[in-house]
């Protein structure tokens, strides 16, 4: 079982294939969350992420372990970036590999949805009109 859990300054997409590839896997599924320019009809310049890192890493490990119990996975990754992120930059990366595709597709959905619900990370939106707002809901 390959497992990688990290809070990082920036997400390096180029390494993802080697991080998830596994001889017993027939498929890899990856979700990358990125900074969107528009939110509720307002233009976003950048986002700022902060975390309670020690707890965030613990929660991410728990989520990975839950997924490993529920689905037949050979590798799993959860990474979240912190600091200022501009439009189009990657902020979160989750992925898994499995012998057959159903398991990694379903697990990947679970990883991102559960991360957004539970992991102590907060995002502030910086708008074009200079407003700054801590985001409180998680759609």
């Amino acid at each position: 079982m390959k497992k990688k859990i990290e809070i990082v300054d920036s997400i390096d997409i180029s390494k993802i294939y080697s991080e998830l590839s596994h001889p017993a896997s027939g498929g890899i599924c990856v979700f990358i969350g990125t900074v969107r320019e528009q939110t509720q009809q307002q233009t976003v310049n950048s986002l700022f992420f902060e975390t309670y890192e020690t707890m965030a890493v613990k929660e991410m490990h728990k989520i990975a372990d839950e997924a490993t119990k529920r689905w037949n996975l050979n590798s799993i990754i959860l990474q979240h970036a912190v600091g200022k992120k501009n439009v189009e930059e990657a902020v979160v990366l989750v992925g898994a590999s499995s012998p057959h595709r159903d398991d990694c597709f379903t697990a990947c959905r679970y990883l991102i949805d559960t991360l957004k619900e539970r992991v102590p990370i907060w995002k502030k939106e910086f708008f074009e009109n200079t407003d700054e707002v801590w985001v409180t809901p998680h759609p």
């Binding site: 969350g33 992420f49 975390t51 309670y52 707890m55 979240h80 902020v91 979160v92 991102i112 991360l115 957004k116 619900e117 539970r118 992991v119 102590p120 990370i121 907060w122 995002k123 801590w134 985001v135 409180t136 809901p137 998680h138």
Partner: peptide, 10 residues
């Protein structure tokens, strides 16, 4: 102890 307001990662 940590005070955790609504989380908004991702």
């Amino acid at each position: 102890v940590a005070i955790i307001p609504p989380v908004s990662g991702g």
